[in-house]
């Protein structure tokens, strides 16, 4: 069964992959190791986990504006997330995703943090403003 969720394009592109989901806002500066793609903020729900090559699903970004450059650096290091889904985009991650060429959407028309679980497969089509659930745990 495929379920399609409407959302808003922030950064162009399409990607299909496994999701990694957090309820916590994330600061890329100091919160993520750009060499490895692991979450290094001990206070974060994804502490110790790797976001490389995953579709990162989070409420929003936070922290230093230098975080935008960190996302770009991760893309160069090939440690960046495959795509980003945010409940509400804020300038730091939005700018970073565009700089890095990572597809990003926000404002999904359902609360996606309640629907998605780690390991679910989704397609993010930022250009069409949709998220397609391909293989859900449910």
């Amino acid at each position: 069964m495929k379920k399609t969720i409407k959302c808003r394009k922030i950064s162009r592109g399409k990607a299909t992959g496994e999701v990694i989901v957090t309820q916590d806002p994330l600061s890329f500066l100091g919160g993520v190791n750009p060499e490895k793609g692991t979450i290094i903020d001990p206070g974060h729900g994804l502490y110790g986990k790797n976001i490389s090559g995953k579709i990162l699903v989070l409420p929003a970004g936070k922290g230093s504006t230098v975080g935008s450059y960190v996302i770009f650096q991760m893309a160069k290091n090939k440690t960046a997330p495959l795509a980003i889904i945010s409940l509400n985009a804020e300038p730091i991650i939005a700018t970073g995703a565009i700089m890095a060429g990572i597809p990003m959407v926000d404002q999904p028309n359902v609360n996606i943090l309640d629907i998605l679980r780690e390991g679910d497969i989704v397609e993010v089509d930022a250009d069409s403003g949709i998220i397609i659930l391909l293989n859900s745990h449910k």
Binding site: I10, A89, P91, A94, T95, I98, M99
Partner: peptide, 8 residues
């Protein structure tokens, strides 16, 4: 980037 900031 400008458009994304404008949308936000």
């Amino acid at each position: 980037i400008i458009i994304a900031l404008g949308e936000i």
